[in-house]
């Protein structure tokens, strides 16, 4: 279960829309035990591509330190798919760094953005429920 406060949900989707025509990405800070997201860290997509993303490593380090200073951890990543479903691509699965993370994909293919979250263990992809909660 991934719990997203409504303002964080809006920030994630807004960052993804703002990144068009390229994919956009960012990190999620929260509680690794519960899956409660406290904040998101929008980052640059170093790949600057409609088909690939790379989280800026310098921004990742700053996000990691900020999260630690707040008593939370980086517990996942979000990125957009501009022309495909909200499902991890083979590249996403192959490069998923941490089986403990939440992998959020935002599809911008249709009129309304679609946000889904997954756990990825090796090549096994499991969708998890997403709760958007008023703060």
């Amino acid at each position: 279960m991934l719990r997203l406060p409504a303002p964080v949900y809006a920030e994630i989707v807004g960052h993804c829309l703002g990144g068009l025509p390229d994919e956009a990405c960012g990190l999620l800070g929260g509680d690794p035990a519960s899956g409660d997201v406290a904040r998101c860290y929008p980052t640059r997509n170093l790949a600057a591509s409609a088909k690939l993303y790379t989280v800026d490593p310098g921004e990742h380090l700053r996000a990691d330190r900020d999260a630690e200073s707040r008593g939370i951890e980086i517990i996942g990543v979000f990125h957009s798919h501009t022309h495909t479903d909200a499902y991890p691509s083979p590249t996403d699965i192959a490069q998923a760094p941490d089986p403990g993370w939440h992998y959020v994909v935002v599809s911008l293919r249709d009129t309304h953005p679609v946000l889904r979250s997954y756990r990825i263990h090796g090549e096994v992809v499991e969708e998890e429920p997403v709760a958007v909660e008023p703060r």
Binding site: C25, L27, L52, T54, A96, P97
Partner: peptide
């Protein structure tokens, strides 16, 4: 020295 995962995909 810090090690972090390289976060990337498609």
């Amino acid at each position: 020295v810090s090690i972090l995962p390289a976060v990337a995909g498609g």
